Simulated assay, not measured.
Amino acid sequence: MKLEDCAILVLASGLSRRFGSANKLLANLSGRPLADHIAQWIETTPIGQKFVVVPHGEEMLAEIFTGRGFTILENSNPDAGQGASLAMGVKAITQTLSPAGIFVALADMPFVQPDTFLRLAATIGNANLAIATDAKRTIPPALFAKTLFPALIALTGDQGAKQILGAHGPIARLPVDAEQLRDIDTPTDLGAGK
């Protein structure tokens, strides 16, 4: 699958309860907001269309992604969970575009490298889904083929795409270094691994 024929959806509307009262995606990581790291990596890829789901009213967060060429999708109900956020994003994308696949990435994963998206596209083959794994966990980033768009749009709750793993096979798993797949959940995580 060619990256140019795909869209990407970054999920950036989580509630970050373990981080405290501040929006973790605006926290400083190496001199820049946390969310800017994944946005920058994606900006350097040839992925055709770039989208991000942000909470309604989060203008500073939206500006980070707008500055990197993303289309903003506002989530007026972040409490509905990651699955609902993913469904909303995929529905919005497919109402105006017909991509061959949709990448899904999380804004709190600042260490994912651009070549991972290229490798996912090369890995998917005849599978419905290509997803990263560090041998312990199977987690985003992931690339969903068009056949899974209806299942993504039907998602609800906080489980994200985990609800459809295994139910709509086959799945291609891409080994990725664990450091790339490290996410930021607490203020302590910002300093870990430096």
Rank of each mutant, 00 (worst) to 15 (best):
A87S: 12
I72H: 05
R119I: 00
A154N: 11
S13M: 00
G101F: 03
F103Q: 02
F51V: 02
I8P: 01
L155R: 10
R17M: 07
I72A: 10
A135F: 03
H56V: 10
Q163N: 04
K194P: 05
D177E: 12
I102L: 04
M88W: 07
Q40M: 10
M1S: 15
I93G: 00
L9T: 01
S85Y: 10
H56D: 14
M1E: 05
L143G: 09
D79T: 12
V90D: 03
Q159G: 11
G193R: 12
N128Q: 12
V104T: 03
H37N: 09
L3Q: 02
M60D: 15
F111T: 13
G81R: 01
A105Y: 10
L3K: 00
P150G: 14
F19Q: 07
A84F: 12
T188R: 06
M88R: 09
P175L: 07
R119T: 08
L190M: 11
L106P: 00
T66K: 15
L61D: 05
Q82F: 09
H37K: 11
D134R: 04
T96V: 14
Q95M: 08
D158P: 09
D189T: 02
D189W: 03
N77Q: 06
L155T: 10
K50Y: 00
I184R: 06
G166E: 03
T66P: 03
L11I: 15
N23V: 06
K146D: 14
T156A: 11
L174P: 00
